[in-house]
Design a protein around this nucleic acid. Structure first.
Length: 738
DNA sequence: TTAGGGTTAG
């Protein structure tokens, strides 16, 4: 670094360019320094010019000082810390100088600093913020989604008679939109006197990104009607709206419109077109475009990869992955998240392992969110916990996404205390964090606590959304809180402004049906303003099974099968109701129908994680390497159960069994029992046995697990399709209400 | 010498 005592600056020539020689004596005047600033290609060169300017007193000249600030803050080799140091050496910065610093921080990773500098400017600058200052400051507020701060700037701009400056107004449209206040954004837009193309683009973008793609497209048509010529930026947002609306037809029209109107295609626009095709499900269109694109970047490749992965064409997806010039973390994330979201959590974890082995790139928060979701699906708490430690070791900030995923993972893996610990450890809790915690408590049968958290959430002024209410109603359903459930359900729209959706109706039918209020449940279904779906009839059918109501069950089942003719769960439930009530002709009739139609019961499958690896068991499974030991443990269990006076519940035995010859052993061979037996032989007595089952736990297995927990003095945690059962000392946390 | 709007993974 140049020191102030260096008498003459002499820099080496840049090897590959004709960069200027710095062997000029800068003491002669400030002008050569200024022209040299423009030619600097590194921070080192800039520092030398800076040193010289300090010596010549050039920083007293506001124009020269500004040039230096611009180069330090905004050039390709800029460093904000350095820019700030330079700034502090300028005796009297003018508005331009302040603006430059505010601008640089506004688009940096630390936009809050931009706002602090704005406030400093008010105190220390003799001039007021001008028409250039506000767009930068408003941009910083947008980045921070700081609604109140931005509103403050808006008010100040009006007071400074800058209220109709088009640059400021356009920034404000963008700002209100990014804070989620589409209404205010629109109001500013409407009041903008002479809208230019940027005004329209800003408003279209706000709609496209604010989940109002239809409004975005309508505004685009309005823009055309007003004879404002759209440009490439307009088309990017319009394409993004088409993608969100999944409107391939309009998307294709937009692409041809781009060509007809000779809007210059650039990389960003091509990528937006690619994205639209992929989101609208036409990977063929995407491929055709991709092949003719003159320039491709990592976004183009990742979008193609995503296109194949979303369609489940993993062969092609992996081919794209291998062909990409480099695999950045986004590419890995596409694979992990598409596996996770299409119900292939094991494949998701395998990709995560590959990523770990490859050493680079490093997982980012998106990777961890998807991987945690895969762990949650599998109940793989060892890996999930490892990721938690990894986050701490990397000193990654727990943002709300990660917090939500951790809470969800711990809750779904059975460790509610850990989930609560994560919840309590964070300062910021958005609606997703609260909702995940409420869901966690609900699935563990702690309905009253869940409702208490809901109250605390309201106290914390966090607005509940539709998901929150699904979880709250779920809590009521699992704990049998019928009156509370009814109250929340009927408060949703009038008090919280959330229209009950299909999931809320299904939950409510479940609450009412499960508690025996079958008539009220039917009445609710009949009064639904939206057509009931299979899940609503399924909830009613489940309630009928619980209360042995054959007539209503048949009605619910026929509605269900009308909507979803291949719903094996419906057949199994009805068949079991018939079996319990001794209607054997109906049972065999149903089974024949299933056989003829080729509908198979989803096989029960239980998994258990031991020492970080997941073991899976099907009914009567004998494929496990420790099969012999598992079966001798099962025999021992059966003996001990028998000597304790346990009699298997015959009605479960008579229920739906896929293979006839398995009937005799079916009960003792249920997958959850195999998994428990394996847990007993492979885990130490202090470790809880944690089993995840893909279907609802069978009644006999539920009773057996209770007794085993007492006989063997073991804690058993069983997660079924709907909730958790904690077995301890002969009792279950669900209090047999499930 | 300064300004506003755009594409990828949850």
């Amino acid at each position: 670094m140049a020191s102030l005592s260096t008498p003459l600056i002499s820099l080496p020539r840049h090897p590959n360019s004709s960069s200027p020689s710095f062997s000029t004596d800068l003491r002669l005047s400030s002008h050569p320094a200024l022209s040299l600033i423009d030619q600097c290609t590194s921070i080192k060169q800039l520092k030398q010019v800076h040193a010289q300017m300090l010596r010549t007193g050039a920083l007293f000249d506001p124009y020269s000082a500004s040039k230096l600030i611009t180069a330090s803050a905004l050039s390709s080799f800029s460093s904000l810390d350095y820019a700030r140091q330079v700034f502090d050496q300028i005796p009297q910065p003018n508005v331009y100088t302040w603006n430059t610093l505010i601008r640089a921080y506004a688009s940096s990773s630390d936009p809050a600093e931009s706002i602090l500098i704005f406030l400093e400017m008010l105190d220390h600058c003799s001039e007021c913020p001008d028409k250039y200052t506000y767009p930068f400051a408003i941009k910083a507020a947008s980045e921070l989604r700081a609604l109140q701060v931005g509103r403050g700037f808006h008010g100040m701009a009006i007071k400074a008679s800058l209220g109709s400056d088009i640059y400021i107004l356009n920034s404000l449209v963008h700002f209100y939109g990014s804070c989620g206040d589409l209404d205010l954004a629109r109001r500013v837009f409407v009041k903008t006197p002479k809208k230019d193309v940027v005004s329209w683009n800003s408003m279209i973008t706000v709609f496209a990104q604010g989940n109002c793609p239809q409004e975005a497209l309508e505004l685009f048509k309005e823009m055309e009607a007003e004879n404002v010529k759209p440009n490439d930026v307009t088309m990017v947002s319009v394409l993004s709206a088409c993608a969100k609306k999944v409107d391939l037809e309009f998307g294709r029209w937009v692409c041809s419109h781009i060509q007809r109107n000779e809007i210059k295609e650039n990389l960003t626009l091509n990528n937006a077109m690619l994205d639209m095709y992929v989101k609208c499900g036409s990977v063929e269109d995407a491929k055709r475009l991709f092949d003719r694109m003159p320039e491709k970047d990592i976004v183009s490749w990742t979008t193609m990869l995503d296109g194949y992965a979303q369609l489940g064409n993993y062969e092609e997806a992996w081919r794209v992955f291998a062909a990409m010039p480099s695999q950045d973390i986004a590419a890995w994330n596409v694979l992990i998240s598409s596996y996770e979201q299409s119900g292939k959590p094991k494949e998701a974890l395998a990709v995560f392992n590959e990523l770990q082995k490859s050493k680079s790139p490093k997982p980012d928060e998106v990777t961890l969110v998807s991987t945690l979701a895969a762990c949650a699906q599998l109940g793989a708490i060892d890996l999930g916990g490892w990721i938690h430690v990894y986050i701490k070791k990397q000193v990654m900030k727990l943002n709300c996404h990660l917090t939500t995923s951790l809470i969800d993972m711990y809750a779904k893996c059975g460790d509610l205390d850990k989930a609560l610990e994560v919840f309590n450890s964070v300062e910021r809790r958005d609606v997703f964090v609260w909702s995940a915690m409420i869901a966690g408590l609900a699935m563990h049968g702690q309905g009253r606590d869940a409702l208490e958290f809901f109250s605390k959430m309201l106290e914390a002024k966090v607005k509940p959304n539709a998901v929150t209410f699904t979880n709250v109603l779920c809590a009521c359903s699992h704990t049998g809180l019928v009156d509370e459930g009814r109250t929340f359900f009927y408060q949703m729209e009038p008090v919280y402004g959330i229209l009950p959706g299909i999931k809320h109706y299904a939950c409510m039918v479940d609450i009412l049906g499960r508690s025996g209020n079958l008539d009220e449940a039917v009445e609710l279904i009949e009064k639904m303003p939206i057509p009931p779906t299979a899940s609503v009839w399924g909830a009613l059918l489940g309630a009928c099974k619980l209360h042995g109501n054959v007539v209503l069950a048949e009605k619910a089942c026929s509605h269900l099968l009308e909507l979803d003719p291949r719903n094996h769960g419906a057949y199994v439930l009805l068949s079991n109701i018939y079996a319990e009530t001794g209607k054997w002709d109906e049972v065999s009739g149903l089974r024949k129908h299933m056989r003829d139609a080729g509908i198979k019961k989803e096989p029960g499958c239980s998994s258990i994680e031991v020492n970080g690896s997941v073991h899976e068991f099907l009914v009567g499974d004998n494929s496990h390497p420790l099969c012999k030991e598992i079966y001798s443990k099962l025999d021992e269990m059966a003996l001990r159960l028998k000597s304790n006076g346990y009699v298997p519940n015959k009605s479960h035995l008579l229920q739906f069994v896929e293979e006839e010859d398995m009937k005799d052993h079916a009960l003792i061979l249920h997958s959850e029992k195999l998994a428990i037996a394996f847990g007993l032989i492979s885990l130490s007595p202090s470790q809880p046995i944690q089993v995840v089952k893909n279907l609802r736990v069978c009644g006999d297995c539920h009773s057996v697990a209770k007794i085993i927990s007492k006989l063997y003095d073991r804690e058993i945690l069983l997660r079924d399709r709907y909730r958790f059962h904690h077995f301890r000392d002969g009792h279950c946390s669900c209090n047999d209400y499930w």
